[in-house]
Amino acid sequence: MSAALFETLLRLGDNTLVLGHRVSEWCGKAPVLEEDIALANTALDLIGQTQMWLSYAAEVEGAGRSADDLAMLRDVWDFRNILMVERPNLDFGHTMMRQFLFDAYHRALLSGLAGSGDPRVAEIAAKAVKEATYHLDRSAETVIALGDGTEVSHAKMQTALDLLWPYTGEMFHSDEADAEMVAAGVIPDPEGLRPAWMDTVTATMAEATLTLPDSNFAHKGGRTGKQHTEHLGHMLTQMQWLQRAYPDATW
């Protein structure tokens, strides 16, 4: 098995799994019905993408584990998602700001991966980028509407942006596994995605009348698994409890 490819697939699948679960936490309690449906649909797309990434990861690992095993039976330290997606939802504005910052990155990343030298990675990405594109349309529209909205919504969106900004840098960091995959033509260079992401973010924040924080400080440790936030463990107790309490349960 290729350890670097397995690591890469976990990073892709864990981002969509953890964010998909977070977004699904809104189901049944979003501010209005349309938003509730939109959030649930977005979560569904992300979980569907997870199924594809983690199925491939399980095959590459070749240890007899399935996508479900990887999702439901790993512990915090084995997850490879960026820290931003495990942050609690807080309010609706924070949820949508996180979604926007991720979607802009996700679309750029998946567009690059659609040209991957690994045919499985390329076909999953080509499928997923269509979904990431309309996720981005919607999250950008919502961030603009709330940022350039009332005094209260504007203040909440600025607070959300300030809180989330230090978590965005991790998306563009890379390590040896990335370098190996870049050299093999499997993934685009993470840092190379930053200009396209920054263009989308700058244009959207200008329209949303929000100010980008002037700092490059980046929290990291999620995509390497070195140090997750305290929030991921709490999330996993919710997400995994059924498979933990009733191993191999099916229905």
Partner: peptide
């Protein structure tokens, strides 16, 4: 358009 998302993933409202 009311919403880009509808009753199933393939539909808008």
């Amino acid at each position: 358009r009311v919403s880009q998302f509808g009753s199933t993933p393939c539909k808008a409202h």
